[in-house]
Amino acid sequence: MKKILEVRNLTKIHGRGCPQCIDSTGPEADTNICPHCGSVVAAHGVSFDLHAGEILGIMGESGSGKSTVVKTLYFDDAPSAGEAIVFDEARQWNLFSLNAAEQRWLRNHRLGMVYQNPHLGLNFNVSAGGNIAERLLMSDLSHYGEIRERARRLLERTEVLPERMDESPKKFSGGMQQRVQIAKALATQPPLLYLDEVTTGLDLSVQARILDLILEIQQELNTAMIVVTHDLGVIRLLAGRTIVMKYGRIIESGLTDQILEDPQHAYTQRLVASAL
């Protein structure tokens, strides 16, 4: 299988940092706050690979560093250390050594992000179609008719009524807003998509339909995805492999079935048990 993403020793520290930060934080230390300098070690030593068409789950309790990982990989946040390589069709992108213009190009053309909070992913001052147009305009499309047609097809694909494409997503339900976000993220057909708690807070039936949509898209387009969630049900349904994080570190990783059937780490065991 073709490798899409390789992440090695990703670290993100909020704060000044000190030589003892790493040794004084993590699951053993039972904190992600350095007692010496007060910095937050949001993630440290995070390494994994992702292959074409694969869905990788990242789970863990609140504050464990899940969003930190995808935010750095989407350039929303700069890492403190580490390396990440995106293997694109013709070339490799060493994410953390790109300049701002290269980052923006890669983000607009080859990556997609769906946030838990639709305000982060959507511009509520423009219509649903305009949100998708914006992303297409970023990738240098300049034909109004074509932009409109593609926006309509994307919204149709994510089951947003095309009649509503000229309305602001402000007026949409939470589930609909997530569908618009997914359509926007898919607009440039990126080979790599990040989904951060996309169904959290939605009704169960709405959740189920969005999860189905994500699976369908993965099968149709062979998009590789990182799915961040604290919901074991989401992990079970979507992710082939899963990473479990605690206090910024990976404490367990492997095939999702194995992790859920036979969790090795006591923390994972508790997570799984509490979900039953």
């Binding site: 511009n123 423009v126 219509s127 179609g129 305009g130 147009a133 914006e134 305009l137 109004y144 000229d166």
Partner: peptide, 10 residues
């Protein structure tokens, strides 16, 4: 440009 798009839509 998105603003121009919205203008044409409207």
């Amino acid at each position: 440009l998105t603003k121009l798009y919205e203008d044409i839509v409207q």
